[in-house]
């Protein structure tokens, strides 16, 4: 995810709910410092988790259906309870991962099943979309047409991705 004020990766993410209005702020290290927002990436993981997982209303905190862990448990151990925790606490964990991983927002490495897997093809699609953007910006239209053709061939090979724009 990019910074609201420049093209650098955002490492500070804030959600402000005021008067029913929901506002999201995403800032890079430089603009976060300018705005006086502390950079969570500079803090140890357990402190990050503690900050994210501090419950304001204990009764409203869900537990993971996979393992029963709550955010309070995660805060205490600095560990997730099971793979399903990643989805159950997606927002809180997502903020923490991005901070701990210096702004990394998505896995781009290997996946199960090798080069022919759905994961590998989706990954290749994302890479090609980024390459297409760069080609268009550089006004390399022949190159852009080649990339578009590759994208077309790839999309014929893979099932549609729910909730994910390529």
């Amino acid at each position: 995810m990019k910074c609201d004020r420049c093209d650098r990766p955002a490492i500070v993410h804030q959600v402000i709910i005021s008067g029913g209005e929901h506002t999201e702020i995403h800032l890079c290290e430089v603009h976060a410092a300018e705005a006086g927002v502390p950079n969570p990436g500079k803090q140890p993981v357990n402190k990050l988790l503690a900050k994210i997982a501090t419950p304001t209303e204990p009764s409203a905190i869900p537990s993971c259906p996979g393992c029963g862990a709550t955010l309070a448990d995660i805060r205490k151990s600095s560990l997730l309870g099971c793979p399903q925790c990643y989805d159950t606490f997606e927002e809180a964990i997502g903020i923490m991962i991005e901070s701990a991983q210096a702004g990394g927002t998505r896995h781009v490495g290997r996946g199960p099943g090798g080069a022919e897997s759905v994961h590998a093809k989706r990954h290749e699609s994302r890479r090609l979309v980024e390459e297409l953007d760069r080609a268009v910006q550089a006004e390399q239209y022949e190159r852009a047409a080649e990339i578009k053709a590759k994208l077309g061939r790839l999309s014929e090979q893979q099932p549609p991705t729910s909730g994910e724009s390529l």
């Binding site: 993981v45 600095s78 560990l79 997730l80 793979p83 990643y86 989805d87 964990i93 923490m96 991962i97 701990a100 991983q101 990394g104 998505r106 896995h107 490495g109 290997r110 996946g111 199960p112 099943g113 090798g114 994961h119 989706r122 994910e164």
Partner: peptide, 30 residues
Amino acid sequence: DKAAEGAVEWAFHERWGYQTACPTNAGTGV
């Protein structure tokens, strides 16, 4: 890892990659 992958299913998330107990190892796990 490749040898094991044929026999077990590793926990894998489309966005976060290989899922680890501590999220600081998530993604590649490498």
